[in-house]
Design a protein around this nucleic acid. Structure first.
Lengths: 130, 130
DNA sequence: TTCGGTGCAAAATCTTTGCATCAAG
DNA sequence: CTTGATGCAAAGATTTTGCACCGAA
């Protein structure tokens, strides 16, 4: 029931080649180069659709707009508290914390959302230069 | 430099006695009973201030408005994917994951944000009644 | 031809802010 | 008095949506 769309394909491809977890606005600005008439609404619609289909991942950072990740393999992120950037973290899987949560919870635990806070290498070195 | 304010005191007290992690809107509606003229803006300003001072905690759930917790002791939460409610989880501390993150990250890790996804006991039992 | 997708603009949702006035210290 | 806090309304930021038209199957 989902038809093919060149815009959606372009959005997905863009995300697959970016590793800085861009916002919808950034995706919009870039996809606009290939589709000058595309609208932000279409970008949001496609990002939701791709995310619902598990083809991309949506990241909510608690501050500012949501970000999107073309890498759907399980991994974690670090949110830089200085520049607001989001970096990948290839740390080992920590699904064992789900079991810890289940130990005292009377409902059902299906998973968890975790991201780390800190400073990215760039902001850290700028700081040390002072 | 922070002056005392009866409104802020009331907001804090309200949060201290609620355990369902209300949104700013809910805080507003309730504090309004005591201060009929209070405005949403004042509620937001005070929630930010209290949060900055570490007197309450702000919870971003990735869906819908932020929620606030009067309990500042470290603990985790479960977000019910059915009703959207947020429940406390008194599980053991998992700060060891910060060390795991540091193992491969070249920047600085200061902490983490984690919440679990699942179904609360109420939604789970309603589901089983079908 | 059919029905999902698009562009555009308006609306919805959540939060912040400017400003005149109020009240705590 | 002085200065932070408040109430109100307007503005901001982000995301969603209605609708007429377009394009994929």
């Amino acid at each position: 029931m989902t038809k093919h769309s060149r815009q959606r394909e372009c959005i997905k491809e863009f995300l697959t080649n970016r590793f800085d977890h861009p916002t919808a606005e950034t995706v919009y600005l870039n996809v606009k180069k290939e589709f000058p008439n595309i609208s932000l609404g279409t970008v949001y619609r496609n990002l939701s659709l791709l995310s619902d289909h598990g083809e991309i991942r949506k990241l909510s950072t608690g501050t500012g707009p949501d970000r999107f990740d073309g890498n759907t393999a399980p991994h974690y992120h670090v949110l830089c508290t200085e520049c607001g950037g989001v970096l990948d973290l290839n740390m080992e899987n920590i699904d064992h914390i789900n079991a810890l949560a289940r130990m005292q919870f009377k409902g059902e635990i299906s998973g968890h959302v975790t991201y780390f806070l800190g400073k990215c290498p760039e902001c850290l070195s700028k700081e040390n230069q002072k």
